[in-house]
């Protein structure tokens, strides 16, 4: 919510230095050239401004958010390069354009992968204005261990989504139970993806319920500065449900929450990489996600 006031400034802030450029270029030329170039700059500025406006309105970005080691960058690399590259903790945001649907189709979507480290994860707010969808990636194999941390992250995302200005159509939210292949399915009837989804949903609902309960009746502390009330008020906002005290994703007032399971396999051994069989294997795990993205576009 802190970044919200800044985003509208951004398009305006970048073009402003533009007029300064004209004196540099045309100090030696006559006055008419100066005038013409000024006019040209103004027109250019308007165009740039309009283009930015339009693109930000349309919102064509899919944000990949989620805690560290969930597999966001691996998903991105699988989507973009059709092969799963080994990854480590990201230092900065990645943003790529991928084609959706059948080959040669013109449908494209911008995928933004935001690092999950607590110190930089709030960067996702900068991209929310152009977001069409937010995919919250959870490592299904470790979620039972670090449920509270994951829930805290998800809470911030939910909070940011609910506090978007009403003029913007809220992006759809998908919770991706990733690394479902690492879960050992005990019963043969349920496949591992369904198991992963169930586990992630149960744990997150439980943790979010806890968070919600701790806010109820609590007197929050004011933040520094004037905008303090907005921040604290927003804490509870993100978790409002239509029915009852608890938290259920299906009752969440912020909109519908989708659940999809997925996995990718990083080609760890060099020989496998050369064979190319890894590529096909890696793709299959993301089919459900691709389908979901396809429906969006």
């Amino acid at each position: 919510m802190d970044n919200d006031p800044q985003t509208p400034h951004e398009p305006a802030a970048i073009p402003t230095p533009e007029p300064i450029s004209t004196p540099y270029v045309s100090t030696t030329s006559s006055q008419t050239t100066l005038f013409a170039s000024l006019a040209f700059a103004v027109i250019l500025l308007v165009f740039v401004f309009l283009a930015r406006r339009k693109s930000s309105k349309r919102g064509n970005a899919v944000l990949l958010v989620g805690p560290c080691d969930a597999g966001k960058t691996a998903i991105l690399s699988t989507l973009v390069y059709k092969q799963t590259l080994p990854t480590h903790t990201s230092l900065q945001t990645n943003s790529s354009v991928i084609a959706l649907g059948p080959p040669n189709s013109q449908k494209t979507v911008q995928v933004v992968d935001i690092p999950g480290h607590p110190r930089i994860r709030d960067q996702f707010k900068e991209y929310l204005a152009q977001a069409k969808a937010v995919v919250f990636v959870v490592d299904a194999s470790t979620v039972s261990r670090n449920g509270p941390a994951v829930a805290e992250h998800l809470h911030r995302v939910l909070q940011a989504l609910t506090s978007l200005p009403p003029s913007q159509q809220p992006p759809s939210l998908l919770i991706l139970a990733h690394k479902s292949d690492l879960l050992k399915s005990t019963t043969s009837t349920t496949n591992s993806e369904q198991l992963a989804i169930n586990r992630v949903r149960t744990i997150l609902e439980r943790e979010l319920e806890k968070r919600k309960a701790s806010q109820v009746g609590g007197v929050g502390m004011e933040g520094l500065g004037e905008d303090s009330m907005e921040g604290q008020g927003g804490e509870v906002d993100g978790l409002e449900c239509s029915g009852g005290v608890g938290f259920r994703f299906k009752d969440w007032e912020g909109g519908e929450v989708g659940f999809v399971g997925s996995y990718v396999r990083v080609g760890r051994v060099a020989e496998v990489k050369e064979d190319g069989e890894k590529g096909e294997e890696g793709e299959s795990g993301l089919e459900a996600l691709e389908e979901w993205l396809d429906e969006l576009a």
Binding site: A61, V80, S95, V97, T108
Partner: peptide
């Protein structure tokens, strides 16, 4: 990894292939 404009796919030259799909890092 910095494609911001959603209009077109970036055309690669270094990898020989046309789209990022066909890049072979190995």
């Amino acid at each position: 990894l910095h494609a911001l404009s959603s209009g077109k796919l970036s055309i690669s030259s270094g990898f020989g292939g046309d789209t990022p799909n066909s890049w072979n890092f190995a």
